[in-house]
Amino acid sequence: MALIGYLRVSKTDGSQSTDLQYDALIKAGVDPEHLYEDHASGKKADRPQLDACLKALRPGDTLLVWKIDRLGRNLHHLVNIVHDLTARDVGLKVLTGQGAAVDTTSAQGKLVFGIFAALAEFERELISERTKAGLESARARGRTGGRPFKMTPAKVRLAMASMGNPETNVAALCKELGITRQTLYRHVSPTGELRDDGRKLLSNH
């Protein structure tokens, strides 16, 4: 069960250094021989060392990155990587930054990443819904206001994770999801547990 580290800087002209990342990963216990380093933009798909790093991971290993933006090109890419790692029994730990709560070797870290995954799915569905709402509005010609967005599986999962956090602002959550408070509580309880409508929605997808 090895610790594997991945480093990335955005420029290849030497103006950015991996020193901070390198020192942090070594301090976290990664052997220098188990470090993989790319010099590429975060949006660039071709990252040979990341590919080599992912292939080198074995069940029981843990992948460590300095910050979460060092790993994925975007949220969807990150979610796909972690789903693949989880399926292979490989953990992920983020050492610092906004993603430092992500540690898929712990229950709390898995919950945090579950919220990330739900957000990624929610983002995809929201874009689709907005596109449909725009088309409907254009066809209606003159009708003010669009149809309210429906509850979706991604929204249910995000609501479950959010309502399980006592610090969640319910009004803000409903506004973000584009649903009413009544719709929220038909699907999810105040403590984040599924209700009948939520179970039905998830069971059909």
Results as ranks from 00 to 15, higher is better:
Phe149Val: 11
Leu85Ser: 05
Leu75Lys: 12
Leu111Asp: 07
Gly91Ala: 14
Trp66His: 11
Asp89His: 08
Lys150Gly: 15
Trp66Gln: 06
Ala120Thr: 13
Ala140Lys: 13
Val94Ala: 01
Ala159Phe: 08
Ile68Thr: 03
His77Pro: 14
Ala100Glu: 12
Gly91Met: 11
Glu129Cys: 01
Leu64Lys: 06
Glu121Asn: 13
Leu126Thr: 12
Gly114Val: 07
Pro148Gly: 11
Arg139Asp: 10
Ala133Trp: 00
Phe122His: 12
Glu123Ile: 09
Ala56Arg: 08
Val90Ile: 13
Ala138Gly: 09
Ala154Val: 01
Arg143Tyr: 05
Arg143Leu: 13
Lys132Trp: 01
Asp69Val: 08
Gly60Ala: 07
Thr105Cys: 15
Thr62Asp: 03
Leu135Glu: 06
Ala56Cys: 00
Gln98Pro: 10
Lys155His: 04
Gly142Arg: 08
Thr105Phe: 12
Arg88Glu: 06
Gly114Thr: 08
Pro148Ala: 15
Arg139Met: 08
Phe149Leu: 11
Val102His: 01
Ser137Tyr: 13
Ala159Leu: 07
Gly114Pro: 08
Arg157Gly: 08
Val90Tyr: 06
Val94Gln: 04
Arg124Val: 09
Arg141His: 08
Glu129Arg: 01
Gly91Ser: 11
Arg73Cys: 05
Met160Leu: 10
His76Ser: 15
Leu75Pro: 10
Lys132Ile: 02
Arg147Phe: 02
Gly134Ala: 08
Asp84Leu: 07
Leu78Met: 10
Ala133Leu: 02
Gly145His: 12
Lys150Val: 10
Lys155Thr: 00
Glu121Gln: 15
Leu126Lys: 14
Leu119Asn: 14
Leu158Ser: 09
Leu119Pro: 04
Arg141Ser: 07
Leu111Ile: 14
Arg139Val: 11
Ala118Gln: 10
Arg73Met: 04
Arg70Cys: 07
Ser106Cys: 04
Asp69Ile: 07
Phe149His: 05
Leu71Met: 04
Gly91Leu: 05
Gly145Leu: 12
Pro148Lys: 07
Gly145Lys: 11
Gly60Leu: 06
Val102Asp: 01
Met160Gln: 15
Glu136Phe: 00
Thr86Met: 04
Val65Trp: 01
Leu92Gly: 01
Leu85Gly: 04
Arg157Ser: 06
Glu123Lys: 14
Ser128Glu: 14
Ile81Asn: 05
Ala101Gln: 14
Leu63Thr: 11
Val156Tyr: 00
